[in-house]
């Protein structure tokens, strides 16, 4: 990165999140660092329970304060997230950073119409009259291509199909022109024909607004469709990071390689899918070395001694692995085209 490089929109340094209870301490995020440039889409992929949602919620400080220990540094725009007062954080939520959840019903209030909810958010953050806010709500529903938007302004969430609800939630999230959109598996519950519509729309809006986006998914096809950069998480750490083409076509970490080969994609029938053996580690008692080592076919003794340092696998492509060369040799040739 040269001296002229523009300042990232998001800078996260050594984020650590653990949940403390009487029985145990769960280390959900264990030293995560990444940046997102303005207008860039970063996809976080990884195993269930690897800390993707916890990382996103940390940026909004949505964890239960009493039971959560957060360490590290997070900056979004000019805001030092961990240093903000609760009041300032409330202003940041929605206006600077907003979030789209996996299940839209958790974000939409069932007793208010779609129009009321969007208008209310606009007024809370930007002031202005109710009439102006309603006009803005209509504009937003148009923007996310909700058919018959005038009628839908007056609809309650349960009166909309899954795809329309998802679009209404995106409209709500965009209502205050955030500079960072956090999207947690926003299309997982949708079927193929509607999912692709929402993805294309999100990508177009993001380009139009110059918004930064962090997008969590476990569908590699979705990542290929929408990401500029991809971060792969395993047991609370980012173990590989790079451009979408580098990570998906030239993976450097054994876990990413395993994820790719276990994805069902035109394999011949009757042949087994190459699954990763074993199961993810217990976050209450992480081993000292690489957390993936017990399941890794490339593992060598030093892997279990200490967590492997991050090594470059290419320009702006890095992986925390001692065996990058061996992994590279195992990537199917066609993927290198």
């Amino acid at each position: 990165m040269g001296a002229m490089a523009p300042r990232p929109l998001v800078e996260v340094r050594d984020l650590q999140v653990s949940f403390v209870s009487r029985e145990a301490t769960v280390s959900a995020v264990n030293g995560v660092s990444f940046t997102v440039m303005p207008g860039e889409v970063l996809c976080i992929i990884g195993e269930s329970g690897s800390g993707k949602t916890v990382t996103m919620r940390s940026l909004l400080r949505l964890h239960p304060p009493r039971r959560t220990v957060i360490r590290g540094h997070m900056r979004v725009g000019d805001h030092d997230i961990l240093a903000l007062s609760e009041r300032a954080m409330n202003q940041v939520r929605g206006a600077v950073i907003s979030m789209v959840f996996q299940e839209p019903m958790t974000a939409l209030d069932p007793v208010y119409t779609i129009g009321d909810q969007i208008a209310e958010t606009v007024i809370r953050h930007e002031g202005g009259s109710r009439r102006a806010a309603m006009a803005r709500a209509l504009e937003l529903l148009n923007l996310v291509k909700v058919p018959s938007p005038e009628r839908r302004l007056r609809a309650y969430p349960h009166e909309l199909s899954g795809g329309l609800r998802q679009r209404a939630m995106i409209a709500l999230a965009l209502s205050c022109r955030p500079s960072l959109l956090l999207a947690d598996e926003p299309t997982t519950a949708l079927d193929a024909t509607v999912q692709i519509q929402v993805l294309i729309m999100l990508r177009r809006l993001q380009e139009e607004f110059g918004m930064g986006v962090i997008f969590v998914t476990h569908d590699l096809g979705v990542a290929a469709q929408i990401a500029d950069k991809v971060a792969v998480m395993y047991a609370g750490r980012i173990i590989e990071y790079g451009s979408v083409a580098d990570v998906l076509l030239r993976p450097a970490h054994p876990y990413t390689l395993g994820l790719l080969s276990s994805t069902v994609h035109g394999q011949t029938r009757d042949a087994e899918i190459e699954a990763i053996p074993g199961s993810p580690p217990d976050l209450r008692a992480l081993p000292p070395g690489c957390s993936f080592a017990p399941r890794c076919r490339f593992a060598v003794p030093p892997c279990t001694a200490a967590f492997p340092p991050t090594a470059l696998a290419g320009l702006d492509h890095a992986a925390s692995c001692l065996q990058i060369e061996a992994v590279r040799g195992a990537v199917p040739a066609h993927a290198d085209a």
Binding site: A192, T193, Q195, A224, Q225
Partner: peptide, 25 residues
């Protein structure tokens, strides 16, 4: 046919730019 066209591939070069099917059911 439209449903099958909505299949995503794990390759950013194979992105879909126009939805094969518009509207909701």
């Amino acid at each position: 046919a439209a449903l099958l066209e909505c299949r995503l591939v794990v390759d950013p070069a194979g992105r879909i730019d126009t939805p094969p099917l518009v509207g909701d059911p």
